[in-house]
């Protein structure tokens, strides 16, 4: 067994999910099976293998996974120019509970 019931409850807490006792047991079994399967990566010798940490590729027909900078990869940076952003009303209109210009949430600080 790779993952215990306590592990599942701890992960659910980290992810802000509530689980019923039945759900906790169902997920424990399923996550255990999946983690056992993905555990096959432990078979590989990964000495001197660099992690692939970004997805930007040189244009043209070559496949070099990790160019030095995103400029070379053809994903140019834009100029850092301050521009007006006038979306506040539209954004707040989708909020479950808003008092312009704020989102309202349950009280966080007790005093």
């Amino acid at each position: 067994m790779t993952i215990s019931r306590d592990d599942v409850l701890r992960v659910a807490e980290l992810a802000h999910l509530e689980l019923t006792p039945d759900e906790a047991e169902m997920y424990r079994g399923q996550l255990d099976e999946i983690l056992n399967y993905v555990g096959k990566l432990q078979q590989l010798d990964l000495t001197n293998v660099e992690p692939m940490t970004q997805m930007s590729f040189a244009t043209g027909e070559t496949t070099s996974p990790l160019p030095e900078s995103n400029q070379e990869a053809g994903t140019p940076l834009r100029d850092d120019i301050v521009r007006p952003c006038t979306v506040a009303d539209a954004v707040l209109s989708q909020a479950p509970d808003a008092i312009k210009p704020f989102f309202r949430v349950p009280k966080v600080i007790e005093r």
């Binding site: 993905v38 990566l41 990964l46 293998v49 660099e50 992690p51 692939m52 996974p65």
Partner: peptide, 15 residues
């Protein structure tokens, strides 16, 4: 981290 390394190997298979 291990998966990110294997991702490099998979990308290398293609290149």
């Amino acid at each position: 981290l291990r998966a990110q390394k294997v991702r490099s190997l998979l990308a290398r298979d293609f290149s």
